[in-house]
Write a protein that binds this DNA or RNA. Structure first.
Lengths: 335, 335
DNA sequence: TTGTAGGCGTTATCAC
DNA sequence: GTGATAACGCCTACAA
């Protein structure tokens, strides 16, 4: 076997030469086989097979101004939070002949702008962003690029383009109401501290106040949200505020950790401590006790985002271009 | 604001015109700023800022035959198994100016070949595959492409190109030895049924036999490996073989589920049932009790794969081109 | 049904 | 230090 040095791969020209046709005919055989005579087609296919020719997508994308590629930008791949959405996006896009390209931004602003620029460079047919783009720089770059954009997982009055999300403020308030109705008077949060989480916290605190309860400062966790940080968060919270009888965790993994920690501390869930998670990504239902959680339909977000992006990439228009998907509280045994 | 139709984004020509220079000078200003006069540079930068110009990576990639892109192909993004590796890959590549593109293949053969082709089309500077490529078709396509390839997470006598992995057979045997030494005589597996898992099972069974123990059929789970399937797997296993005193789970999420289920069944871990996981991705250490697990250094795999791919993409050679990273059994309280 | 010419946006090369 | 030219590999438009 030869040393795998940069022996240039075959081009459409090479294949054409081997098949005894023009490059254009090879292109047709590959893209619109019905427009090629059967025996010509066979000769081309034979040459393609023989050379293992794979067309160069940079060249065809350049010529067509269509990359058949959609980019998804996520803060992190760690944890189950965005998996449903990515899964659904991937499936939907694949079915329509688009490839999904995933980029990780971290929860860091500079990194996000970097990634945004790198993504725009590839001229994908669409960009799906997790969360809303906050930097003016990033927003302008996106708009100037002319690429269809879907922001997700959050609402905003000023989307860059399209949006499919839900209200974190509503979630914060709804969870307070839910726990209050179930008799809890000392309720608190174990939460990440990203923008979406802060929005929930603000609404949570406001609702606590409007019900005449006293505000308890949340225990903040560092990203990524893991079982371990959930355990630590709950420990800190209860050390500081032992009167707490109910916690709302900003993700199911945190809630799972909190549940484990509660047991370690000798607290019965839900009798002595009620726990509510966020996301509902399987772990919640599979835990013991099964966790009450705020369900976010990631699959639906992914599907809608794919629909929107593809529609616009193919010249259609999308309406409504802003969708609030809402959420629901799934009651299980942890509360 | 204008309707976001396909108003063509600016090209390097537009920027050149605005800055009053040639396209070539803009290109230099962007790529080798030290080679242009300071005031020219300033004029170009001003024009770039004004237009929000972002260079077209398809065009530059085509011209340079370098995409500054590395593709990682994963069976799934669900679950923590490959996260460490992806995280490390992303970080290493980003630091060197490469972008990481992630593709999901599912555990499906046809889908994998599809994804391989789609990936080769983009002409990335390297491809990192999780697991070894099994289809002859896929292997040939990869070799013909001339793209540096790193297979990971597994060993094989016939790598496509480079490889950084570890021996699943050794793991299977080592876990049997470990549990046997700790006095267990009825040991079994709760396992996924992908190729790597099957290799572990085979070696596990062989070692069980060579120690004179009787073989117990594993409980198979469907991908993805979740806590829920771990719970179900253990339930099935114990229903069939109540004599089992130790289980080896093919991932930490399965082990976590098994641990939960054991508790539900009223079994003390580890007194009545020992549990060993695989992966060591945080959840193992954060569980209660903390889980004994076979540690795989995903970070190291990611880093090495990035090193290898970049070295080769930049014309260097890599040696050794096959690395066995090994594994270690981390003893915690579940065994 | 097939082929020829030209250009997508960028950069290597060589000339000034 | 800067610019003109050509070429990367493919496909649109048009011609045969």
């Amino acid at each position: 076997m030869s040393i795998p040095t940069a022996n240039k791969p075959f081009t459409i020209q090479d294949v054409a030469r081997i098949a005894g046709v023009s490059a254009m005919t090879v292109s047709r055989a590959l893209n619109t086989p019905q427009k090629v005579a059967p025996d010509t087609l066979a000769r081309v296919q034979q040459a393609v097979a023989q050379t293992h020719f794979v067309p160069n997508a940079m060249a065809s994308g350049l010529r067509r101004s269509r990359a058949r590629l959609v980019a998804a930008l996520l803060p992190t791949l760690v944890g189950p939070v965005f998996q449903e959405m990515v899964e659904a996006l991937d499936r939907s896009l694949h079915d329509r002949g688009y490839q999904l390209m995933i980029g990780q931004s971290g929860y860091d602003q500079a990194r996000e702008d970097d990634l945004l620029r790198a993504t725009i460079q590839r001229r994908p047919d669409g960009i799906v962003v997790t969360g809303v783009v906050r930097s003016e720089e990033g927003r302008r770059a996106l708009r100037a690029s002319g690429i269809p954009v879907v922001e997700t997982w959050e609402l905003t009055a000023t989307p860059v383009d399209m949006l499919v999300g839900f209200s974190h403020a509503q979630i914060g308030a709804a969870v307070v109401d839910y726990l209050h109705q179930r008799g809890h008077r000392h309720i608190a949060m174990v939460s990440a501290d990203d923008q979406r989480a802060l929005t929930r916290i603000e609404a949570f605190d406001a609702q606590v106040a409007s019900l005449g309860l006293s505000r308890i400062a949340p225990a903040f966790t560092r990203p990524p949200s893991t079982m371990g940080s959930g355990r630590q968060g709950l420990r800190e919270l209860l050390a500081r505020n032992p009167e707490v009888t109910a916690v709302f965790c900003s993700s199911d993994m945190l809630a799972l950790g909190a549940s484990i920690e509660a047991r370690e501390l000798g607290l019965q869930v839900p009798a002595q401590l009620a726990i509510v998670g966020l996301g509902d990504q399987g772990v919640a239902a599979d835990a013991s006790p099964p966790l009450t959680t705020v369900r976010i339909d990631g699959t639906q977000i992914g599907r809608l985002a794919a629909d929107m992006v593809v529609a616009r990439a193919e010249g259609g228009s999308v309406s409504p271009s802003v969708v609030d998907l809402g959420f629901s509280i799934i009651q299980r045994q942890s509360s």
